[in-house]
Computed example of a mutant assay.
Amino acid sequence: MIRNMLVSGILSVCFFAFSFPLTSYAEQSTHNVQKGESLYSIATDYGISYKQLQAMNNKSNVTIQPGESLQLPVLPSSAEKDLLARLVEAEAKGESYAGKVAVATVVLNRVESSKFPDTLYGVIHDGKQFSPVLNGTIHQPAGEESKKAVQEAVYYQGYDQESLFFYNPDKAQSDYLEDKEVTTVIGNHLFLR
């Protein structure tokens, strides 16, 4: 019996140790261009479109140089997509599909920003940023529309207006956010940078 408990304990530790990545997104957020590479070949290697890679790096053409560092979009794992979809479900319940995409985009933008943690988990659980984390509604399952919105936000990276914040001014007041530039208004939410 003790042997079975020991084996179960070891297996549990191994499961948790290998289920969560040990590297942060920041270590994977750039690609150093090698001789012979093109935007198209790099994008193909990462499973993204070359137009998205071009947009992420503010390139007006496809010219790149060896040694150049290219920013990559956030490429979340399935577990991270689920976490983000649950946040979107709880945070943007009752909002339009476009609003849900925009909420997911803000989180992805924060991962890329030096002002916030460099992982989806870190951004979502960063202090008192999101009420669903504080009130526990983030633990409820996401609906199909929220899952689809997350996927679209992943593909949308590089094409947005770099929003880092959102809030509903009818429900919350923020002196901090009042000084930020409004990038768009969707439904009841203001999106800002």
Rank of each mutant, 00 (worst) to 15 (best):
L11C: 14
T30A: 03
G36Y: 06
Q129Y: 10
I138R: 01
M5Y: 13
K128Q: 01
L164V: 03
V33T: 04
G94R: 07
K81Y: 00
L39N: 14
S60C: 07
A102K: 03
P73T: 04
K81V: 07
K115H: 10
F130L: 12
D160V: 07
F166S: 03
T184W: 00
P117L: 07
G143M: 03
K100A: 11
S41E: 04
E112L: 15
G143T: 03
S163M: 03
R86T: 05
G127E: 09
S38G: 14
Y97I: 11
S131D: 08
L53E: 09
S24W: 01
V101D: 04
F130R: 01
F165E: 00
L192K: 13
F20C: 11
N58Q: 04
S96F: 10
M1T: 14
S113I: 12
A172D: 07
V150F: 02
V74S: 08
D118M: 11
L192I: 10
Q151A: 05
D118V: 14
K100W: 08
G67F: 12
N135Y: 02
Y155E: 15
R110P: 08
F191T: 05
S38Y: 10
E68R: 10
Q140F: 13
T184R: 14
P21D: 10
R86Q: 13
L134R: 04
L83S: 09
V13W: 13
N135V: 03
S163T: 02
Y40L: 15
L39W: 06
F191H: 07
Y176A: 11
T63S: 05
L83M: 13
F130T: 02
Q54T: 14
Y155A: 15
D118Y: 13
F20L: 13
E181A: 14
G136F: 02
P21L: 09
